[in-house]
Amino acid sequence: MKMAYLKRIICTICAGLLVTACKEDQSLIYEQDARIYFTQGLTTEYSFTAEPASVVTDTLFIPMRIMGAAVDRDRTFNIIVDDSSTAKLGYHFQFGPLVIPADSYQLSLPVYIYRRPGLKDSVVNAYLTIGETADFKPGYIDKAFSGNPYNKQHYRISLNDQLLKPSTWDTRWATYFGSYSRTKHQFINQTYGSGAWPSVNFPQDINFVVQTMKLALYNYEQANGPLIDENGERVVFL
């Protein structure tokens, strides 16, 4: 009994000494496997309607980053096109080289997209997931909740060649642009140079879009007369 008691005292003292023992702090350096992820997991929606008919291909860029140190050789990574994708690799889109160049930490991966006839009447999606290679494992996931499936391991590219009424038309743009028509939408896309304007949301940026459209419509009318939409109505902005 006494024996066990003493043993415990001595063990406690020794444990105390061990715990307080000093050890040099190691600097925090990532020493695990090299990994790769999408800098921002999200959806890129692209509509060919903003381009003249002569444009049959375009390039999107997906920013990517690696985890771990850069090395002095090119390394390959993999992106898996999920089975649920309606966009076909090689037909609707094609990746640039899946290579992280030597001594690089990041890459803007070019994705070549093609204007195919089917895009006129359907929207196709490519669901992308980081795959594994000998060089890179999938990187970290920033948001693990179901509300945003496009975290840093997932990405969606959505392609179409048809005018879809933007979801922000009624809430944001109807005040400036009035009632929706496809002709009006097409005119705005072509003036703005892309279909990206519906997501503009700061007041002075919105003003600039509105001012640009009004001036463009004025100049159009000076040259061609009124722009008439698919319903036979003259296109006007408020």
């Binding site: 700061f202 002075q204 003003n207 600039f208 640009t212 009004k214 001036l215």
Partner: peptide, 26 residues
Amino acid sequence: VHTNLVGGFPGIKKWGEAIANPAGVY
């Protein structure tokens, strides 16, 4: 006339395009 709107909102504010007069002309 070109206008510029500032306030508490984010983003870079610059002068926009010319604005039309009440007759819609420039």
